[in-house]
Computed example of a mutant assay.
Amino acid sequence: MLLREVKKHGVNSISFFVRGKVVTFSRDDFLLITGLWRSPTRVVRSEESSQELATRYFGNQSTSNTFHLNLLEEEYKNLVFENDDDVVKITLIYYTKVAMMGKNKQKSVDDRTLFEDVEDIDYYNNLNWDTIIWQRTLDALKTAPNDKVGLYKEKVKGNKNYVVKYSFREFPQAFQVDVP
């Protein structure tokens, strides 16, 4: 599908030529499918937010301003939590990073701000997820097939069974279930 992209000037959508028609996947489509609507309230992060959660469960492996997503993924199933709140918070980080933002295997170092954000659960729940996740997903959709069309045309000449492969990052599930 991504190889059928129609270059348009819309910054908040991506369009494709399918069966003689231009089909567009927009921010509104994404939000309708995911339910990630903008929170009507703005919550300011508590000044008490810290890296305490990251330090408690990942110790000195999380002391810098970056955090290795691979560490979270590997250690998550073995963590022994001190309380139910920590289970919820670490699970939110895990789901957000692995499912919603997608793991980029080429870039395993991650920003630790989600640990700070989730320390104040009201702040975390009121983050502008519609913008955060949508923009990352749109950018990933637009860049996934970079240079793949030329590569496909070149390779298919020598092998009619050649298949172009590329990876989706971020939250492509919404794109995958969108039925025009």
Rank of each mutant, 00 (worst) to 15 (best):
E5V: 09
E5T: 11
H9F: 15
V11C: 09
N12C: 13
F17S: 09
F17Y: 14
R19K: 15
R19E: 15
G20K: 03
K21E: 15
I33K: 04
T34R: 07
T34D: 11
G35K: 10
L36C: 12
L36F: 15
W37E: 14
S39R: 04
S46Y: 04
E47K: 07
E47L: 05
E48R: 07
S49I: 00
S50W: 00
E52L: 09
L53P: 05
A54K: 03
A54L: 10
Y57W: 03
F58Q: 01
T66R: 15
T66C: 08
H68Y: 11
N70K: 12
N70Y: 13
L71D: 15
N78W: 11
K89T: 01
L92G: 01
I93D: 02
K97V: 04
A99L: 03
N104A: 10
F115Y: 06
D117K: 12
D117L: 05
D120W: 01
D120N: 07
D122R: 04
L127C: 11
D130E: 15
I133F: 09
Q135E: 12
T137L: 06
T137V: 01
L138Y: 09
D139N: 08
D139V: 02
A140Q: 05
T143I: 07
P145Q: 05
K148S: 07
E154G: 03
K155L: 09
V156C: 08
Y162D: 08
K165P: 08
E170W: 05
P172L: 01
F175K: 00
D178Y: 15
